[in-house]
Design a protein around this nucleic acid. Sequence first.
DNA 1: AATGAATATGTAAGCACTTACAATTTTGTT
DNA 2: AACAAAATTGTAAGTGCTTACATATTCATT
Lengths: 334, 334
Amino acid sequence: MNIYDIAKEAGVSIATVSRIINNKGNVSPKTQDKVLKVMQDMGYTPNAFARALGLNSIKMVGVLCSDVADKHYAKAVSIIEKELRSNGYDAILCCTGKDLKDKKKAINVLLSKRVDAMILVGSVFQEKDDNSHIKEAAETIPVMIINGTYDYENTYSVSCDEEESVYTCVKKLVEDNHKEILYIYDVESLSGINKKNGYLRGLTESNIPINEQLIVKCDRTLDSVKDAVDRVIENDIQFSAIIAAEDVLAVGAMKSLTKKRIRVPRQVVVVGFNNSVLAECSTPALTSIDNKIEILCESAVKTLLDVFDGKKTKKHQIIKGNIVYRESFVPNKM
Amino acid sequence: MNIYDIAKEAGVSIATVSRIINNKGNVSPKTQDKVLKVMQDMGYTPNAFARALGLNSIKMVGVLCSDVADKHYAKAVSIIEKELRSNGYDAILCCTGKDLKDKKKAINVLLSKRVDAMILVGSVFQEKDDNSHIKEAAETIPVMIINGTYDYENTYSVSCDEEESVYTCVKKLVEDNHKEILYIYDVESLSGINKKNGYLRGLTESNIPINEQLIVKCDRTLDSVKDAVDRVIENDIQFSAIIAAEDVLAVGAMKSLTKKRIRVPRQVVVVGFNNSVLAECSTPALTSIDNKIEILCESAVKTLLDVFDGKKTKKHQIIKGNIVYRESFVPNKM
DNA sequence: AATGAATATGTAAGCACTTACAATTTTGTT
DNA sequence: AACAAAATTGTAAGTGCTTACATATTCATT
């Protein structure tokens, strides 16, 4: 069934039907009602592709995500999708894993679907690495990066200032007399590095010498963290606080501590990052840095809509995170 | 840039270019190479809409999900997307919340985008409720339901046998001499009810009278469960085991127990459902019923592809879950 | 009632592809 | 070298929509 069928049934031309579909006005109320009724009765839905061909916009945005099964990305995607849809856009989701080739393939598919823009969630590599997939996309459509940056034409970003957030957190810990702070991160993403820089700056500015043994790398799995922290403890390296680049890592660390009868927060204080459900659910409940993912994502979509409208927008926005205190760390002086 | 530009540049007709794009054969290797090179050089990507117009398939599947921020749904969506994409299909994601009207709106958008099929994740209401959105979709395209059923033409489903899984779990608990088993569920979804039926059957078949005070309803939030369980304990209602319809609920329950100095699993044994990250991360680690979501989703996509190919397929598949033992409950007799 | 402006409707040419069918070229056979 | 068969290539007609432009209708004004 197509616009011709409707036109014939309603006894008007296809132009009139099209005008009604698109609310273009210049149609008498009488015919409008008549045509709308016919569309209703025949259960007609306009074909979005054909429309896209004419309009040159399909009202879809590609969302490139390394992994929606990750709670943190899932939340981001969920908010992005909601924001987009409430503005008349749909989201095509592509989960690509960490591989550049897969990302490029996905981007090609999205480009062939002539999406109006692309939003990258956890899909930017470190600066030194190859980020050519972003360039490829930005050549054709605006690209929005969530929590990452890449300076290129037609490329925008909205990020949490992870470096600054961790820096502030270190300062808070130092104020509370913690001098040996263990930093745990996974190297999968750029953000672990950013956060590490905040950690380093925090210590340096507090005149605390940096102890490389207190900087621990591991995979983003419970077992991997547990092993890593076990090793630190077994090597008799002293620490009274932990900052983890991710809530899962913090939880894994606490598991290790609990096994070794080290009390949280009495003996060791723990802070996570992302303020995810895990933070709430762990025992003790985890103090965690909130990276304001809702605000980030909302702002990202808003910016993109502005770009569509040809409005001037800030290319790179940075928002500061804040610490949500629970049981695993409560500062003496709040 | 379009197929004409490529054709002109390569000195062939658009039909030849089209044949190459679609791998239709009947093209000499020489021209094939020539044209491919031109496409490469000019950075050409075929327009999927125009193709869809001709082919009458856009190679996209709509995924209707009540909430991707929910870890469990996120996992499902992630697997579905991966399976689809590895078979040349894209996923359009629509998160609609629990509202029927929103679902209908989303379905209309998806239909207008002429998706080849629709997959529903957490988007089926109870039987007695209005599920007309499914009918509306199935009128036009095949609909696949994950963990739910709705018997209608062109509608398929793949589910975990939640009733049976909980039933088996109750049996296991009874074998271990638990007679007072607390069942906690949230009423948001159909599945809480299914699981409750398994709980009831398990008790009945074990000749244990049903105590309505041991059946607790609450919201799907930590605080809500904690309150609910607190109340049970404060009313001095005895129980030695808990089955929760969701891992979060189990975690909330454990939080309440811990606060009241009730030891898990020594004094009370706890079993969750879904075998999510939470189960791993909670303290003590949660024994949880795995509903095999990967298998469900893979099977769902496979079935859909078969439907596309016109192959005969089972309309409704049921897979049994299994208990993953961790710390919160380990049976004496395994 | 006649006029012109304002409003409503229709015609036809895109948009970027696919594909049936026709036309051409190549190949193999004698 | 001539011919038919096979392989390759091209033409043109769809696919369902938008929209500039042309045409027809309505309305207010004199």
